[in-house]
Design a protein around this nucleic acid. Structure first.
Length: 833
RNA sequence: GCGGAAGUGGUGAAAUGGCAAACACACCAGCCUUAGGAGCUGGCGCCCAAAAGGCUUGCGGGUUCAAGUCCCGCCUUCCGCACCA
């Protein structure tokens, strides 16, 4: 019975054994100091939120990163492969409410559980550099950075709108607003509230963040485009309009100043200062404007801003077009946004869809001022929004092309002092205040005498109190902890109040990957020399859902740190790799759909190796992956074949002299050829394409061939040194994808050292070369036959072989061969007439 | 509306412009048996009873000796952004 048991591949026996051995050897996955002299490789996967459970998306993400890390270790690189926990955030507070567990305990228990899962999966992380963002030795540096930014003028406070869930009685982040409702209360509309908020001046870096994208060649085009759109640079003109009988001027932003002779009104956002001023003196107007504001609010809340019907209110005031003296009625319109441009537009119904719709509704005049560039073209229907045109009905500017007219009109405005060219961004400053408990306290003090006073560095960290009652009452929870709130002013020493807002959790993840390079540093966020050695990150691997927020914030943070003199790199990551989603039955896995596959379950049934290898085999890593359990079973069966193949022939391999492995036997030569072709293919894929699905397929082909030659391997027909080479190389190739089985079989082959330290096999082109190859022969582009020729055959020999082929002769009988194209090693095409 | 990606067997997929469907899954037939979530052999795009042959990469054009791959125009799906002036 025992013997038979041994004939079966049993991951449940193999994997825990190696897991224990690896855990007992912390140096195995540890990064070495720069002095190692090895070339560095920093492979990073996005750190998880410690929810308590890994999901399949994590497994896929980490399987990709771990395969790369293991491969690079075997290539002799100094590899940094760290892991940590994005540990602040609302779920911990929700759990606290639900289970009466303190957020800190809940979070740390979760990350400990997930670390166990990761170790069970055999992921090779250097746990000595682990970062947990909710611990004071990490978040104190958030506070430190905040103070440095404040010194540089990158921090300010201002009144701002926030998302407010009345049921939770708390502020929500934008990403927690789903279709205008709270993510935890699907039927509760999120309201907008005005609060005084802390902001980081990310817009100071808007231009650099945009320009830098052009050089990020290792980032997916999709992500770069999304960031470009998010930053939303647009070039235009600001023009000041005087108002009849009023002292104010109204500044308008437009990208189409060339259409200004077609302006027939000005439209102002309901919250525009001019409107506010008018409303103060006019109850009726005030009420109407309030109506518009309510409408906008509602539209914003329902996430359907574009769909509300345009309407407006005439103010009765008149603006003057500075170019031609036209008198333009001033309106308040519900489709104009206060926070883009200047909050005021010139309305040109002839050449803008929205203005046209508005003008039709209120019977405002529509003027044609742009004609198609081609004079023969028919006069187009209005609105004509193309910028390929020339000016008409525009005084001295008639006949100018759009672009030229814009330049001339800008010059004119500057000469007369009523306008100038202007670049506007859609990117807004980063509102980082959260009226929540579980986050980094903002290190500021409110003093009656000195106002806002930053905490001195030597009083950091401002510790988040542990004992706190989390309730559903409004306001910052920290405000209800007197020991926290009551302090003394660092400047004057008088009693003062601490800031009770905490920081957005995206701050935690904006720089965590620098901390990995020096995670235990208690004097600085990290040693610049260490960061300089490891940065930039070589591949940064994660889901595309972070394309905007996290990846813009962390680029911003990198630039700030560079300007603080801490680092020398401009960008955090050389290459960004966005893996596809894991889906099941055509839909993203989710609890509500009931199609969630648990990694623990897969590991229990098929083992970590099969689970990981399936995650790499089922699809290329950048595409969505459809999880099919039968596929995991298939990979598991394959690993069983490998196990049987290697254990069966390992005695032969162990006794072989490893120095001579070149085979004289035909079968041995064929297997060696396949082996060296496989090594070449996989090595090449690791160098950039990362199509691990075809790497696994190539290993399967190799195993299939070896299995088919089982008799020759057993009989000695294939020399023992070749058997040895075949088996050891196979196990080495498998190591990045199925680390447990590879380690087990490595030992089975009598190897003493860790497989992770064994050199990656090298493909010998001599051994990989085919003796004879098949060349498809086409006649007039149609496949007709296949001829066999020696591998290095000359074009004329290949041509002769093709012409001699029977099927080819039949096909070209009675016709003349007009042309012969020979692609050596590839194909022959005969053109016959 | 703007931007991005993708459309290939029953399924996941493969294919530096050079034999479309490698490798797997599922299915079918057979073998073995210690009856297992095991192993082995064979079959498996479509048309034709089979062979021979023909057809086939969303649709329509084009470039080329040669197109799943390159170019142009459409259609569909997914994703991101969106009264952004």
């Amino acid at each position: 019975m025992a013997d038979e048991k041994e004939l079966r591949y049993d991951p449940a026996a193999i994997e825990p054994k190696w897991q224990q051995r690896w855990a007992a050897d912390p140096a195995l996955y540890a990064a070495e100091p720069a002095a190692s002299g090895k070339e560095k490789y920093y492979v990073l996967e996005m750190l998880p939120y410690p929810s308590g459970q890994l999901h399949m998306g994590h497994v896929r993400n980490y399987s990709i990163g771990d395969a790369l890390a293991r491969h690079m270790w075997m290539r002799g690189y100094n590899v940094l492969h760290p892991m940590g926990w994005d540990a602040f955030g609302l779920p911990a507070e929700n759990a606290a409410l639900k289970n009466n567990t303190p957020p800190r305990e809940w979070t740390l228990a979760n990350s400990a559980a997930m670390q166990k899962q990761m170790q069970r999966l055999g992921l090779g992380y250097d746990w000595a550099t682990e970062v947990t963002t909710c611990l004071p030795d990490y978040y104190r540096w958030n506070q430190w950075f905040f103070l440095r930014m404040a010194e540089k003028g990158l921090v300010y406070r201002k009144q701002s709108k926030v998302n407010w869930c009345p049921d939770c009685a708390t502020v929500l982040a934008n990403e927690q607003v789903v279709n205008g409702c709270c993510w935890r209360h699907e039927d509760t509309l999120v309201a907008q509230q005005d609060l005084e908020q802390w902001f980081l001046r990310i817009t100071a870096y808007a231009e650099e963040l945009l320009k830098g994208l052009d050089n990020l060649e290792g980032w997916p085009e999709k992500v770069r485009t999304m960031q470009r759109n998010w930053i939303g640079r647009s070039e235009g003109t600001e023009i000041d309009f005087a108002v009849e009988n009023r002292p104010e001027k109204i500044r308008v932003f437009t990208t189409r100043v060339d259409t200004i002779f077609g302006a027939t009104s000005l439209q102002l956002a309901p919250e525009h200062p001019f409107v506010v001023a008018l409303a103060q003196a006019d109850q009726g107007l005030a009420r109407q404007v309030q109506g518009l504001i309510e409408e906008q609010k509602k539209a914003r809340e329902s996430d359907d801003f574009g769909a509300i019907e345009k309407h407006g209110i005439p103010t009765g005031h008149i603006a003057i077009n500075p170019y031609n003296g036209d008198l333009l009625p001033i309106w308040v319109a519900n489709y104009v946004l206060l926070d883009y441009g200047t909050g005021a537009i010139m309305s040109v119904p002839g050449h803008d869809e929205r203005d046209f719709e508005f003008a039709k509704k209120y019977a405002l005049p529509v003027k044609r001022v742009i004609a198609p560039a081609d004079p023969r073209a028919e006069e187009p229907e209005l609105p004509f929004t193309s910028d390929d045109g020339v000016l008409v009905n525009s005084g001295d500017y008639d006949g100018l092309a759009v672009a030229a007219a814009q330049r001339r009109l800008q010059e004119e405005a500057e000469n007369h002092g009523y306008g100038h060219a202007k670049v506007t961004y859609r990117l807004k400053d980063w509102g980082i205040s959260r009226q929540r408990y579980w986050g980094t306290p903002i290190p500021m003090v409110h003093c009656e005498t000195d106002g806002l006073v930053p905490m001195p560095d030597d009083q950091l960290p401002v510790i988040l109190p542990n004992k706190i009652e989390i309730t559903q009452q409004g306001g910052s929870p920290l405000g209800r902890v007197p020991e926290f709130v009551n302090t003394t002013c660092p400047k004057c020493g008088k009693p003062a109040r601490r800031e009770t807002d905490t920081m957005d959790t995206f701050i935690d993840s904006s720089w965590y990957f620098y901390r990995y390079t020096d995670a235990k540093n208690s004097a600085a966020p990290f040693d610049p020399a260490k960061a300089q050695y490891w940065f930039p990150i070589d591949p940064y691997i994660g889901g595309v859902e972070h394309a905007i927020l996290h990846l813009i914030y962390s680029r911003f943070w990198t630039k700030v740190m560079r300007d603080l003199g801490l680092i020398v790199n401009d960008e955090p990551a050389k290459r960004l790799f966005t893996q596809g989603m894991v889906i099941k039955d055509g839909a993203k896995m989710s609890k509500s759909k009931g199609n969630v596959v648990s990694p623990d379950d897969m590991v229990a049934r098929y083992g970590a190796d099969a689970t990981r290898m399936y995650a790499l085999f089922a699809a290329p890593p950048d595409r969505d992956l459809d999880w099919q359990e039968d596929g995991v079973a298939g990979v598991s069966r394959f690993l069983g074949r490998v196990w049987r193949l290697v254990t069966k022939h390992s005695p032969t391999a162990r006794n072989a002299d490893s120095l001579q492995s070149s085979s004289k036997s035909e079968k041995g030569g064929a297997l060696q050829r396949k082996l060296h072709q496989t090594i070449a293919k996989i090595t090449q894929d690791f160098e950039g394409r990362w199509h691990f699905n075809t790497c696994v397929a190539a290993i399967m082909e190799l195993v299939n061939e070896m299995q088919a030659a089982d008799a020759e391997l057993s009989s000695g027909e294939v020399p023992a040194p070749v058997v040895r080479e075949l088996l050891t190389s196979l196990v080495l190739l498998l190591a990045p994808f199925a680390p447990f089985l590879a380690a087990e079989l490595w030992e089975e082959l009598g190897e003493q050292t860790a497989i992770l330290r064994a050199p990656w096999p090298k493909s010998d082109p001599e051994l990989a070369r085919e003796d004879e190859i098949e060349i498809p022969v086409q006649v007039n582009g149609k496949l007709v036959s296949v001829v066999r020729v020696p591998a290095g055959a000359q074009p004329k020999d290949i041509e002769a072989a093709a012409l001699a082929d029977e099927k080819v002769r039949a096909r070209s009988a009675g016709k003349t061969v007009a042309k012969v194209i020979v692609v050596p090693g590839r194909t022959v095409n005969l053109v016959v007439k």
